[in-house]
Structure formats: C-alpha cells, structure tokens
Design a protein around this nucleic acid. Sequence first.
DNA 1: TCAATCAGTACCGTTCTGGTCCACAATTGG
DNA 2: CCAATTGTGGACCAGAACGGTACTGATTGA
Lengths: 151, 151
Amino acid sequence: MLRLSRLTDYAVVALVRLGRAEAVETSPGIAAAIGLPEPTVAKVLKALACSGLVVSQRGAHGGYRLSRPLHAISVAEVILAIDGPIALASCVDGAAGCESQSLCPVAGRWDPVNDAIREALTGITLADMEEAAVPRAFRLPAELSAATAGE
Amino acid sequence: MLRLSRLTDYAVVALVRLGRAEAVETSPGIAAAIGLPEPTVAKVLKALACSGLVVSQRGAHGGYRLSRPLHAISVAEVILAIDGPIALASCVDGAAGCESQSLCPVAGRWDPVNDAIREALTGITLADMEEAAVPRAFRLPAELSAATAGE
DNA sequence: TCAATCAGTACCGTTCTGGTCCACAATTGG
DNA sequence: CCAATTGTGGACCAGAACGGTACTGATTGA
C-alpha cells in the first residue's frame, strides 16, 4: 500500500497544531490537544527537533515552537525527519548490497521513480494540508461532493 | 523510509524480463533467470495475473506473457497490483475508521499528497525503467561516476 | 534548590512482510 | 483417455519493523 509510518501522520498533525499556537507548547499539551498518547508525541517532537523543523526550549516553561512558518515546510521534509530518506525500494541509488546485482535487469533503476516522488512531495507544504483540513462537519455538502468527485 | 514492498521490485524485474521474452515463460524459468526463489516469483506472477498485467496459460507448455507492451504499463499499476492502493497514510480518503477524527486537524488530508504521488507514478512506464536499466558492468566509468555524483 | 521540561536510551508486544509448502484445477500431448 | 506439466488458491511460519512505553539524565527558570 506504499505505506507511510503513522508517526509521520502524527508529526503533521503536531506541526499544524504548533503552527496555530502563539507561544511555545509542551509535548503533553500537544498530546492532549490532538488526542494521542504523550510519550509517542514526545518521540515525534524529538525527531522533528533533531531535524530542525521545530525548536525546543528546555527547562521550566519550555516547550516547542516551529522554526519556520507552515508554508515553508514541505511534506518531504517531515517524511525525511520521521521516516528517513524518501526512497521506494531497498535497492536504491548506489546501494551495493544487492547480491543478485549481476542478474537484476533493473539494478537500482527505481531512481527516476524516487526522484519523481521526491519532487511531488517537495511541492506540497504543510500550509496546503492545513488549508484542506477543515473538519468535515464544518464543510458544506457542495465542498464534500466536489472533493469526492476529484478522486 | 516510505518503503515499497520488495515484491513490487520483483514484479518489475519479472515484467521487464517478460517484455523481452518471445514466447510464454514459466514461473520457474523466470525465477531462474532473475535469480530469485521460485515460490516467491510464482506468488508475484499470480498477483500480476490477477490484475491483468500478465496473461497466464495453464497446462503443459503454459506460462505467462505480458498483456501489454512495457511502455503501456505504468509503475503505478504494478504497485497497485502488488501492494494495493497507492496511499500514504492509513487515514485516507473517506476512511471512517479513525477514532480521533473529531480531534484530528488534518483528517484525511493526505489526499493531495496521495494524488501527487499517484500522478507521478502513473507517468513512469516500465519501458522507462528498462531503458535506464543497463547492467552496471556495461556502463562506462564516466556514467557510473556521473550517476553517483547526483546523489 | 527545586520543579518543570526536554533528551536519550533501552525495551517489549504487535503487526506485517517475505518466504515456503501443499492440495487442486486446467491443459496439453501421447 | 490418461498422465505429465503448469498455474491457482490457500494456509502457514519466521523474521523484522513499527508503535508504544518506561526510565534516567540534562537543562532551565523561579
């Protein structure tokens, strides 16, 4: 299913949440706000801080805040922070670990595919996702039908 | 890592192989040709046959052949056949299984991302991958260094 | 100095993937 | 008409990865 780790989903939610916050927010606070277990949220935030997407402030009255506005953060960056490099196959780029390399007729040839995906993901920012993230209950029936028609 | 199942990789290899074959090929034959265990290849071919990408012929002197030329098969179709629907998150489209839907501020909003990926993958055919799949032993050192420099 | 908060690590249970095997159906060829 | 060949479908198992949790330490502010 070309799955993305669930943690990345959490990361997007947390980042959007932070984008709306005015001051720093603690990880328990964010966890409560988005309805997720606190340790998990903390783990996600740590990874995001490690990648520089959020800035952490330690000590009392500390917490997290965005390092950049939402429209300056691409989905690709979030995935990179949580899931690691964006690549579809284990056999990627110059990966020399493939034992059947001599037989494999497409040796590492997922590269164009990976590039295409990277490009697609870089073009979408969190602001785009936030904009489309109006709760369904608040959307007009016309919006809903228009959205489903496009799928 | 935004992983794709290894079976999909196998599927591409097998399909490219079939694209070069002149007659039908048996699954043991393909397995031997691409250096993969036979039962695994058989499983992949079954899935591909189920999706109509290859045509199976039962009985003695049976085997598999492509239903369409390589340039008419997109990577997206192969992924769809092996891995199922192309979607990044478990929380997709109208998926109503999300228990924290009321809290989730991006409820199902991976849709634009999924669409972008689907589009990118649909634009790449197996012929594109085959073309780029010149065995490394046959490539000039200049090509190899140029390829690695791009990473 | 103490409390609040992030940082890092280590661990466990569940789930999924990859891989194997077996019984059955279909087709060909003698 | 029979037997050999080949795909079909399902069940099954081991290993790894993921999600989630707990614990200890470091840092900051009151």
